[in-house]
Design a binder for these strands. Structure first.
Length: 124
DNA sequence: TGGATGACCTACA
DNA sequence: CTGTAGGCCATCC
């Protein structure tokens, strides 16, 4: 019975390391954990993070929408909190992730090391 | 052991 | 471009 929050622990570490005024996406966290395909599992980790002191409000989906808002309590607490940190929001209630997107060093290092030829990954 | 769930992401029609 | 479907990984019952 491992049941060790190995994966969760990683997510917590990443989220906890998110600098103030920055936001990250599930995919990045998942990748930072080593499994970008487990973006969903990352959400699970945050599920417990919402009960923790982790700045889960800094975690948004790829488009920058506060998906966890509904789990937070239908309130704009998340939005207000992010705004308080200097995060700007879009008209669609989406964080300007493009301007505040923060990528974990692990991902950066890995992305640089592994992917030398950056082939337009997520360019939509 | 296996099915079901989950705050996602990507791909295809 | 929008909508739908599938996948991927981990935890819970």
């Amino acid at each position: 019975m491992k049941r060790e929050k190995d994966f969760f622990d990683r997510v917590y570490k990443i989220v906890e390391k998110i600098p103030r005024g920055k936001v990250t996406t599930f995919g990045l966290i998942a990748e930072a954990c080593g499994i970008k395909s487990a973006a969903r599992t990352v959400g699970w980790a945050l599920n417990g993070a919402s009960a923790s002191h982790l700045p889960c409000h800094r975690v948004v989906n790829r488009i920058g929408a506060l998906t966890g808002r509904m789990h937070f309590g239908d309130s704009h607490l998340m939005e207000d909190l992010l705004r308080s940190e200097g995060i700007t929001f879009d008209k669609d209630d989406c964080v300007e992730i493009k301007k505040h997107l923060w990528i974990p060093p692990k991902v950066l290092s890995r992305n640089q090391k592994k992917s030398k030829t950056n082939n337009g990954k997520r360019s939509k």
